[in-house]
Design a protein around this nucleic acid. Structure first.
Lengths: 231, 231
DNA sequence: CTAATAGTGTCTTTTAGACACTATCGG
DNA sequence: CCGATAGTGTCTAAAAGACACTATTAG
């Protein structure tokens, strides 16, 4: 590193967020409608400048709170990757550090807040839509990261409320992967992974059928052995 | 994204490289000795500014060529993650996009070139050394990424020359993971993964013992099923 | 009762790992 | 011959997937 950082090129650094949640059994992403050029009226990922005295993680958490209108957003937040093509923003050089957030079903962003222009869009629809900037590529990378991480981590619990059933967790996998899983084998697999689920001792009746046991997420972060998508 | 990119905070964007190779059966990383403050005399990851008209990937590839002194560096190059703590560089706000490069045994960077101050350092030693900035954390993240990716991708071949034996490939795993693998089961596993290895039809005698078949890397990028580190 | 969902048991096929055995070299 | 490394065959234990079966609810 032999450079003079006071003579650096002019670059702006932003964070962009891929916020995924499950609504009605379908994967949704949080998008905002742009009110100004370029790409006025086009849908875009929420995001904004990194402030001078905050870390990248802090900037992502701040934007997430602002865009959802929630003080503390439950779920999971991790850095995805950075995008810096010189032509990705027509106005100037903008390097964007993208973050991936996974959250349980959140309320529709309330009108009258900073998040008024944000909305949940099914990923299946958003992926077929032209988004602003290179946000379609970022969204695709975020969805693929989520899909892959379900295989070998306990990340699926980030899509669930604090207490959930095995069927809830299975629904996460089925929605994110787009495949049906055998309920019986899935049940045996997740309940036999040590530290993944903590039994609350209570049950929840969901219409007809035997009531399901309620669990909380355990300490386990890695799934050993991993689930496999293709079988 | 409701911001004015012409009123952005002053940020510099650099790329830093974690270049890993195998030398004498041990994992090595390319480090440079800093010639100026801060951290004068301290070892650091190679890196530098992203130029105004190049992509992040191009910047990483350019720095890699400059620091190794090679026109076209064989192996693999991918983005690792970005580091942007406001205090990571005492001079000003610097966001660094780190890249991970894996290469076959490269020559010692030649004196008299741009890469004259670069050298190969065993990862085991570098990890115990105080590096400049937050480079120790970046190095640890890069090594962990390499370790993890060997499990489920064909990335190990990036450490090998164009033609290599099964024992060469096994040596990569053993060096990066720090574990011994059963040569017979390893052989069966890699040769039975479709598309991973292409038999050249030739063999290579390495001292005593039966000559080993020479392979080239195939098209397969993913290992299905993956190798497992802990068993 | 029936329909529906939760959860357990068991069988079969596949796979990982241990390791005996054969093949081919240098000396 | 011996010792070393390359490569194959085979056995066993574990795991994945298919699916019969039991448990508990609503109606």
């Amino acid at each position: 590193m032999t450079y003079d950082p006071t003579a650096f090129p002019r670059v702006a650094v932003t964070v962009d967020l891929v916020v995924l949640t499950l609504r009605g059994g379908a994967l949704h992403v949080l998008l905002v409608e742009r009110g100004e050029e370029p790409f006025r009226g086009r849908l875009a990922l929420p995001g904004g400048f990194v402030r001078p005295d905050e870390t990248l993680d802090d900037a992502a958490a701040r934007e997430l709170a602002e865009e959802t209108g929630l003080r503390d957003v439950p779920g999971h937040l991790e850095q995805l990757r950075s995008y810096g093509d010189p032509a990705r923003d027509p106005r100037m050089r903008v390097v964007s550090v993208a973050y991936l957030a996974l959250a349980p079903d959140l309320p529709e962003p309330a009108a009258g807040t900073d998040a008024a222009d944000a909305r949940w869009v099914p990923v299946a629809r958003a992926s077929g839509t032209a988004l602003a900037f290179d946000h379609a590529a970022i969204l695709a990378d975020g969805v693929e990261r989520a899909r892959a991480k379900l295989e070998y981590t306990s990340l699926a619990t980030a899509f669930c409320p604090p207490e959930f059933t095995v069927a809830d967790l299975r629904g996460v996998y089925e929605a994110v992967w787009g495949t049906a899983l055998d309920p019986r084998n899935f049940h045996r697999k997740v309940t036999s992974t040590p530290g993944l689920l903590v039994d609350t001792g209570r049950t929840r009746a969901e219409g007809r059928g035997r009531p399901a046991a309620l669990y909380r997420a355990g300490d386990a972060r890695a799934l050993q052995p991993p689930f496999t998508r293709e079988a």
